[in-house]
């Protein structure tokens, strides 16, 4: 029996039309694979370069002396290359920024997602987006001209450029991403949970903090990861407000981060000093990978729990 309409065509692969289509399919697959490989290739290249450039100095200085040495004096007659101050400063700085930024950003997100009137919410969300777009160097400038003298006057310290200034600047910088991601996470919580809670006699605030927030946990954790990533990698803004002396970290001391250590000396460096800076970059890189892995593991664990 013949069917009216389209002429019947055999389903064989030998068919010309099918061959052409298959070729296009393969080409496109190949192209996407290539693009993906380029991306992966870049990452591998950077990793390789960092390792190759960073290892020689570590070998010469000695791993323990490098990682745990407390004195950094790269151009002294008797140079010392201990980066413990930088490691600790980066850790404390990021932790401080997270400690301030996460609760602030998160509570702001709860307010915007649950409590704010639509008009206010629009205005505040625009402000947050604007904050997200401000470049680091502007943060640094405002920090240098306003925050640093401010800290000096407020706390009666001789000089305001300090770890505290850096922490405050970092906290403000990570706010927008934390707020935005948290809002998305909160809005994704199904309404049924909130209804059930209210029907049991809980107040709206109780509902938000005992049901919505725990349900949005993984989204909020993602926000924290974003914040940590930005804070630990920030260079420009921090360099303008933190004083840049290679001291062990203290809230009101002038400090140097892993990032600013590389940035401030790279231009003038030569020889072992320069190689040591590459090693710092390598350490920073490993740090970031470690933090990402740890947070991923933590997220996985809490999901299964």
């Amino acid at each position: 029996m013949e069917r009216a309409g389209i002429a019947p065509r055999p389903f064989r692969k030998g068919d010309n039309m099918a061959k052409k289509k298959q070729l296009v399919e393969n080409l496109v697959h190949g192209l996407f694979l290539l693009l993906g490989l380029i991306t992966v290739g870049c990452v591998l290249l950077i990793t390789l370069y960092l390792v190759v450039s960073g290892i020689p100095a570590i070998r010469e200085i000695g791993l323990a002396d490098f990682l745990f040495g407390r004195r950094w004096a790269s151009t002294a007659a008797e140079p010392a290359y201990g980066i413990l101050p930088f490691i600790l400063t980066s850790i404390y700085g990021t932790a401080g920024a997270i400690l301030i930024g996460v609760p602030l950003g998160f509570l702001c997100a709860v307010y915007l997602a649950k409590m704010a009137q639509p008009g206010i919410r629009n205005i505040m969300e625009s402000a947050v987006s604007l904050l997200a777009g401000i470049p680091s160097v502007v943060y640094g400038l405002v920090g240098m001209l306003v925050l640093v003298p401010g800290i000096r006057r407020l706390f009666h310290v001789p000089d305001g450029a300090s770890l505290l200034a850096a922490i405050l600047v970092l906290a403000v910088m990570i706010l927008p991403s934390i707020i935005k991601v948290s809002i998305t996470a909160l809005e994704a919580v199904p309404r049924e949970y909130e209804e059930a809670s209210l029907a049991l006699g809980a107040t709206p605030v109780e509902t938000w903090f005992r049901v919505s927030v725990p349900a949005a946990k993984s989204g909020i954790a993602a926000a924290v990861v974003l914040g940590v990533g930005r804070a630990i990698g920030e260079t420009m803004a921090v360099m303008m407000v933190s004083g840049n002396a290679p001291n062990m970290p203290d809230l009101f001391q002038s400090v140097r981060f892993l990032t600013t250590a590389v940035a401030s000396e790279m231009a003038y460096s030569a020889g072992l000093q320069q190689q040591a800076l590459f090693s710092i970059a390598l350490v920073l890189f490993l740090f970031i990978m470690l933090i990402n892995a740890a947070l991923k593991a933590f997220l996985k664990g809490s999901k299964e729990g």
């Binding site: 049924e192 949970y193 209804e195 059930a196 029907a199 006699g201």
Partner: peptide, 16 residues
């Protein structure tokens, strides 16, 4: 009031 007048919904909605 909601404590004394409880509710069960159409789609089961236990908390996660």
């Amino acid at each position: 009031l909601r404590r004394e007048v409880g509710m069960v919904f159409q789609k089961p909605n236990p908390f996660p």
